[in-house]
Write a protein that binds this DNA or RNA. Structure first.
Length: 430
RNA sequence: GGGGAGAUUCCAGAGCGGCCAAAUGGGACGGACUGUAAAUCCGUUGCGAGAGCUUCGAAGGUUCGAAUCCUUCUCUCCCCA
C-alpha cells in the first residue's frame, strides 16, 4: 500500500461528495478494486470527464486497483440522470468508434502496467451482448422492485416533467446496476465511484449485489464542479473543451485553464493537478501577493496540458499565447517561420482569397464581409471597424475604406484579421 | 367536445391606424479600464455608404397609410367536461 490515503486525498482536494457507510473503512483495510463508468456519447472525453479520471488516478496512487468501464452497452440505453428529455440513441457503429476513442484516451492517464494495482479497462458490451432480454428480466429484474426504481431522483424528475420517459431509459439504472454486480462477481470490485448525479445508479448496483448474492459493495461520489459565475463547467463559446487535439487544439485547451477565474482556480488546482497540499498553499500565497501574475492559473494550465497533450504541445501553446496576447506586433508575426506561424494559428477559422483580388487591393469591408465571411454583413463590418474593433496583422484599423493589398501578406500568403481582442481569423491567399 | 387568452426583432416584453425598424430590460458583440479577471462606464445589435428596402405566426382583405382593423388558416397556453 502506498502511504497516500485515497479518501483523505479526495477530501482535502474538495472532490469528495458522499460515501456509503463503511466505504472509508473498507478502503483503509487494504487494496481495493474500484471502477468508474464512462459513457461513450462521443469519441473523445472532454474536461467534464477529467474529474472522474483524476479520481481514478488518486485511487491508483493510493495503491488501489482502478477499473475504467466503457459503457458500450449502457451507451445504447442512455442515462436519464440530469437529463430533462429523452436521449437520442447512437447507432452501433458510432458507439464502437466512441468506445475505442475513450479507451485510447484513458490509457494516457492510468498506469496499465504496474503490477498488482495496474489499471484495467472493461467494456460492458462484452457481458451484455450475449445476455438475452428474458434472462435479464429473470435474473436481474426480479431482484429490484419498480417501486425502488421509481423512487430514484432521476426517474422522479422525469415522471413529473412534460416529456415522460421511455422504458429504455427507465431500465438504465438496472443495466448499470448489473455492471456493478458483474464486476463485483467476476473482478472482485467492491466500490463504484462517479459524479454525484450517479449516486442513484450506483446504489442500485450495491442493492442488486446485496439482494442477489448477499454481498457487500460500496459507493463514493465526487462533487459537481462549480463555476463562480454559475455557468456550466467545461463549456466555452465554441462548445465543450475536448481532450482530443483534433477537436480542441492544445492551445485552446491551455487557454481554457489559463482563463479560470480566481475563485475557480483555487478549487480546480486541487482537483486537476497532483500537487501536494503544501505546494498548492505555497502557490496560493504567491498568487495572493501578486494576483495579476495569475500564478495559480499558469500552474494549473501547465500541469494539465502536459498531462493531456505533452510538453511539446504545452510549449507551443505558451508560445502561441505570447504572440496572440503579448504585445506582439506585425514585425513579430513576420519573423515567425511558416510552420510555427501555422501552429500558432492552428484551430483559428480560416478563409481563402485569391491573389488576383489582392493584387488590385481590396477594400477592408469587402475583404471581411464579402470575400471572407468573417462578418455576416457589410454594415456590421463597417460598424465594427469604425468602433475600433478590428485589427489586421495585430495593427488596429479604424477606417473602413482602408485598402488591403500584397504589402500586408505575412510569409507571402497569410493575413491575420482580428475581431475584438480574442477572435483571430486567418486569411489564406492563393 | 365547450369556453377564454395569445403569437412582435436573439430572449423577455411594450406598442393597438400615421410621430414604428418598433419602448424597456436581458443577452450577445465591440471599446475604455484591467490580469487574456471581476466590477464599472461607453457604443453597436434587420439589410444598405446613402436614398431607400424587407420585417411584427401564415395567407388574403379594408385604408391614402396596418405590428395595430376585418376574414381564413396554423400553432401555443389556460379553464370546464
Amino acid at each position: 500500500m502506498s502511504n497516500l490515503n485515497f479518501v483523505e486525498e479526495m477530501r482535502w482536494r474538495g472532490m469528495l461528495q458522499d460515501m456509503m457507510p463503511g466505504t472509508e473503512e473498507k478502503l483503509n483495510a487494504g487494496m481495493c478494486s474500484g471502477y468508474i463508468g464512462f459513457d461513450p456519447t462521443a469519441d473523445s472525453m472532454h474536461v467534464g470527464h477529467l474529474m472522474q479520471v483524476m479520481t481514478l488516478i488518486h485511487f491508483q496512487r493510493a495503491g488501489h486497483k482502478p477499473f475504467a468501464l466503457v459503457g458500450g452497452a449502457t451507451g445504447m440505453v442512455g442515462d436519464p440522470s440530469g437529463k430533462s428529455a429523452e436521449r437520442n440513441l447512437l447507432d452501433e457503429e458510432t458507439l464502437n468508434k466512441n468506445v475505442t476513442g475513450l479507451h485510447n484516451q484513458l490509457e494516457k492517464f492510468l498506469d496499465f502496467n504496474c503490477g498488482a494495482n495496474s489499471a484495467v479497462m472493461v467494456n460492458n458490451y462484452d457481458w451484455f451482448k450475449g445476455f438475452s432480454f428474458l434472462n435479464f428480466i429473470r435474473d436481474v429484474g426480479k431482484h429490484i422492485t419498480v417501486n425502488y426504481m421509481m423512487a430514484k431522483d432521476s426517474v422522479k424528475k422525469r415522471l413529473e416533467g412534460e416529456s415522460g420517459m421511455s422504458f429504455t431509459e427507465f431500465t438504465y439504472q438496472l443495466v448499470q446496476g448489473y455492471d456493478f454486480y458483474y464486476l463485483w462477481k467476476h473482478h472482485g470490485i467492491s466500490i463504484q465511484m462517479g459524479g454525484s448525479d450517479q449516486w442513484g445508479n450506483i446504489v442500485t448496483g450495491t442493492e442488486l449485489i446485496r439482494r442477489k448474492d448477499g454481498g457487500e459493495a460500496f459507493a463514493l461520489t465526487t462533487q459537481l464542479i462549480k463555476k463562480s459565475d454559475g455557468t456550466k463547467f467545461g463549456k466555452t463559446e465554441s462548445g465543450a473543451v475536448w481532450l482530443d487535439p483534433q477537436k480542441t487544439s492544445p492551445y485552446k485547451f491551455y487557454q481554457f485553464w489559463l482563463n479560470a477565474s480566481d475563485d475557480d482556480v483555487k478549487s480546480w488546482i486541487r482537483i486537476f493537478t497532483l500537487k501536494t497540499k503544501a505546494e498548492i498553499e505555497a502557490l496560493e500565497t504567491e498568487h495572493n501577493a501578486a494576483p495579476h501574475l495569475r500564478v495559480l492559473q499558469k500552474a494549473l494550465a501547465t500541469e494539465i496540458t502536459i498531462r493531456v497533450h505533452g510538453e511539446t504541445e504545452l510549449n507551443k501553446a505558451i508560445e502561441a499565447s505570447a504572440i496572440l496576447f503579448g504585445a506582439s506586433t506585425a514585425d513579430a508575426l513576420a519573423q515567425l517561420d511558416e510552420a510555427t506561424f501555422l501552429d500558432v494559428f492552428d484551430g483559428v477559422p480560416q478563409s481563402h482569397v485569391t491573389l488576383h483580388d489582392l493584387n488590385a487591393g481590396i477594400n477592408l469591408v469587402d475583404l471581411l464581409a464579402d470575400k471572407t465571411q468573417i462578418f455576416p454583413s457589410r454594415g456590421e463590418a463597417r460598424k465594427m471597424i469604425t468602433g475600433g474593433g478590428v485589427a489586421v496583422n495585430k495593427q488596429k484599423i479604424d477606417n473602413p475604406e482602408t485598402l488591403v493589398n500584397t504589402d500586408h501578406l505575412i510569409n507571402g500568403k497569410y493575413i491575420i484579421a482580428q475581431k475584438g481582442k480574442k477572435n483571430y481569423y486567418l486569411i489564406i491567399v492563393e
